[in-house]
Design a protein around this nucleic acid. Structure first.
Lengths: 225, 225
DNA sequence: TGATTAGTCAACAGTGCTGTTGATCAGCGA
DNA sequence: TCGCTGATCAACAGCACTGTTGACTAATCA
């Protein structure tokens, strides 16, 4: 058959590239099938690598999954927050929520598979709150909430979970329809916009809901840490 | 060993109860391991049923998964929106966002496994937007957004995704710490409260962000359907 | 150029899961 | 009470995947 290339040649020796190829393939499969759904056979085939080679790089399937999750997680972190090594220095400067939101929306919309991997990992993790991405985001919202630019009474943890999971689920919801990159850009802007609109004005005319306003004015149910 | 019961007796004949037991067990496993992670062997064992019996009820593994997802989905729908059969009649009456949010938060916090199943199913689905739960929620937010009780310019789809995924991810984030039902109740209230607070006032002092306000005042990037 | 190292690969054994089949027997109607 | 239906179960065959081993050979270095 035309187009069918019989594999005669051995893969050129390049451990780092091979490792990367395996991780890339594993990440894609992971996004589709979830942690329990990826087999080393599939991964190896998708990466164009012998199964034995994959076992050379990652001793067990379990290891490969873990490495892939970490790899994806690190990629995400850098894309949204920058180099984790220099993050300590930047914490002092003021947080710009609009900028962060836009970066988040853009990233999520252009890397839906990574978002899927992240979501699946968080869902499977025994201690999701330990995830570095989540911690960083919560921290950043928390720092903003402490300034006088924020509305009083913001619960940073809840708010973070809302915005972050929204950002990652939005491409899942919207992604099916939008293949081309222009549409995706528009969807990212749409998300960022609604996010900012909500942050600025909320979604309800608060003057029309005196009962709720009163309830909110009462003491918080639990002091946000 | 004491406490060890050797199984000599055959399960009493009760197809509907058996089916329910299988679905229940499958749902629990599904929440933990994801669709690709559940085996009929495990399910049958957890349900205290012979594997062959499970195959009698659900012809293939694939079928069982699908049935379980549908079963869980239906349970969720009823818990939050009530009987789907009578939903048409209730659409006319006014939507109370506070009430809906509280029901959602309560439900999510007391049924974290069902939320997991739902999230996993949505993540795996080729067309997540078709999910009835999501559609109903978007519809309800959309109807609210059309009233003059809502802030102008609300993007109902984005807002729904944000709140809904937040509600389902919140127990995932917070759940690990909180076993006992009192703590869970408090966490549910905390979520509902922040949700309402956000809906009422947003999270930013909008007077302090004139640039963003101006950007938002400009024409929407895309007309929300 | 020759020897060593180590990245790549094919083949093997072991295991668990899927789906099927035929036996067993509880409950139900005649 | 008897016979029948079909719910339940144990055992079988086939398959895919995991992890291992030893051979091959491309790079590296002396």
């Amino acid at each position: 058959m035309p187009g069918q290339v019989v594999k005669l040649t051995r893969r050129p020796r390049d451990p780092v590239a091979t490792r990367e190829a395996i991780l890339e393939a594993a990440s894609a499969l992971l996004a589709r099938a979830g942690p329990e759904g990826v087999s080393l056979s599939e991964v190896a085939q998708a990466a164009g690598v012998n199964r034995g080679t994959a076992y050379q790089h990652f001793e067990t399937r379990e290891n490969l999954i873990a490495a892939t999750v970490e790899w994806a997680s690190d990629k995400m972190f850098r894309a949204v927050f920058g180099d984790p090594a220099t993050i300590g220095e930047r914490q002092v400067e003021n947080v710009d929520p609009a900028d962060l939101t836009e970066r988040l929306a853009d990233f999520a919309m252009s890397n839906p598979e990574l978002c899927r991997v992240w979501l699946l990992q968080v869902l499977a993790s025994p201690d999701p709150a330990a995830d570095p991405f989540w911690r960083e985001y919560v921290g950043s919202i928390g720092r903003f909430a402490a300034t006088d630019l924020a509305e009083p009474g913001v619960d940073a943890e809840v708010l973070s979970v809302i915005v972050l999971s929204g950002a990652f689920m939005w491409p899942v919801w919207a992604g099916a329809h939008a293949q081309d990159s222009e549409e995706r850009g528009e969807l990212a802007r749409r998300f960022a916009r609604e996010c900012m609109r909500l942050s600025m004005y909320g979604s309800m005319q608060h003057a029309r809901f005196p009962a709720i306003a009163e309830r909110l004015a009462a003491k918080p149910v639990s002091p946000p840490r």
